[in-house]
């Protein structure tokens, strides 16, 4: 491995988890609003990058730094999470936003998918469409 993880100060504060992004937390807001304040774009989505045996660790970290503007420490942390755990949530936001990130990742050759934040591997996702 060529990249080492510097014990960066901001790595801890930037930890990406889907724990705080449950769709349920927003239900009260949608009940209050009469108009469509809570559109589809407001439901949080995750951008997931998956491990593969081809992409170089240095390159993955470079992509996180140059595309997202993440620090070297944060990029290395996310890269190692992909490498060791098989996947990492590297960004979140509205659906269109994370889809745009996914296409950018595909442009770089990284294997990325989008998923609803509430279905992030805990098996109780609230999927709208029941296909697949």
């Amino acid at each position: 491995m060529t990249t080492t993880v510097a014990p960066g100060t901001n790595a801890a504060t930037c930890t990406v988890t889907d724990a705080g992004l449950k769709g349920e937390e927003r239900t009260d807001i949608s009940e209050q609003s009469s108009t469509d304040l809570l559109g589809a774009a407001d439901i949080p989505w995750n951008l997931v990058v998956w491990n593969d045996p081809v992409n170089l660790m240095s390159y993955v970290s470079y992509v996180f730094q140059s595309y997202f503007g993440y620090s070297e420490a944060k990029s290395n942390k996310l890269m190692l999470e992909v490498h060791k755990k098989g996947r990492s949530i590297v960004a979140h936001g509205g659906k269109e936003q994370v889809e745009q990130h996914a296409v950018a990742m595909h442009g770089y050759g990284l294997w990325a998918t989008v998923e609803k934040a509430s279905s992030g591997g805990d098996g109780r996702g609230r999927k709208g469409g029941a296909r697949g």
């Binding site: 996914a102 990325a112 989008v114």
Partner: peptide
Amino acid sequence: RLLPNVMKNDDAASLEFRQLT
């Protein structure tokens, strides 16, 4: 691998996205 699906378990949504992108 060069043009992957954007969703892991939703082929229909992935195809729709593919048409656009």
